[in-house]
Computed example of a mutant assay.
Amino acid sequence: MTSVYDFTLPALEGGSINLGALRGKPLLIVNTASKCGFTPQYEGLQAIWSFYRGSDLTVIGVPSNDFGDQEPGSDAEIATFCSRNYSVTFPMAARSHVRGDQTLPLFRWLTQEGGFLSRPRWNFYKYLVGRDGRLANWFVSLTSPESRRMRLAIERAILDH
């Protein structure tokens, strides 16, 4: 795989998310969970999606139960939770593994691109991909989606043609 656009994710509500259909657009990919101390970051992710959507940025949530069993629900329960509690409208993948033997190929690639330290160590790791399909930056769980650091990185990714 040479870029993020070579991957497809299973979609939360059935079907798939073909990242190739987003070629040329910057992406913010986040491993999420519904019962985590960082779960309120859904609000910031939705704000980013709403604000930058017209600038081609796509936010994609990837629910995972890999950390502390904090995403135990079914895909339908996750969809209901995200919609009801955070009015999430950005694309969401089906619950998937982001570490271990069953890691999604996309997350294997992100870790390869970002190096060992970029491997998700908890929920709400954030991966910013530029228009060229390469990993531009990554952020740990503690980095708020609304932080100045994230906003500047997003704006750079949007402006970089």
Rank of each mutant, 00 (worst) to 15 (best):
N65W: 08
L110W: 02
L142N: 12
Q46P: 06
P72Q: 14
G100V: 08
Y127P: 05
L117Q: 08
E77F: 07
Y125F: 12
Y127V: 08
Q70M: 07
D69S: 15
G68S: 04
I78V: 13
T143Y: 05
A136V: 09
G73T: 09
G20M: 01
L142M: 10
S74C: 03
E113D: 02
C36I: 06
P72E: 13
I60R: 02
G115E: 05
S118I: 03
Q102M: 13
Y42G: 11
L152Y: 11
T2S: 12
F38N: 02
T143N: 05
D6R: 09
T111R: 02
W109M: 00
D132Q: 13
L106P: 00
L128I: 09
L19W: 01
L19P: 03
Q102T: 15
T80D: 15
P26G: 00
L106R: 00
T8H: 05
L45Q: 09
P72H: 05
D6T: 14
S144C: 02
R84Q: 14
L106N: 01
A93I: 10
D56S: 14
T89I: 11
L22F: 11
R53I: 08
E113V: 09
S96N: 11
F116P: 13
M150L: 15
S74E: 09
F38P: 01
S147V: 10
Y5S: 06
Q102S: 14
L104I: 12
D69A: 15
E146H: 08
L128G: 12
W122I: 06
G24T: 09
S141A: 10
S55P: 04
G37F: 02
N31D: 02
G100I: 07
S87Y: 01
H97N: 14
L57G: 04
G100C: 08
E155D: 11
P105Y: 06
M1Q: 09
G15Y: 06
V140R: 12
V88R: 05
G114F: 00
F67P: 02
F51V: 15
Y127A: 03
A153R: 01
V129P: 03
F107H: 00
S147F: 08
T89C: 07
F90M: 06
A11N: 09
F107E: 01
M150K: 06
D56A: 13
E43A: 14
T32P: 01
F139G: 00
L9T: 05
A157R: 01
V59S: 03
G68V: 12
G44L: 07
S96G: 07
Y86M: 07
R121H: 10
E71C: 09
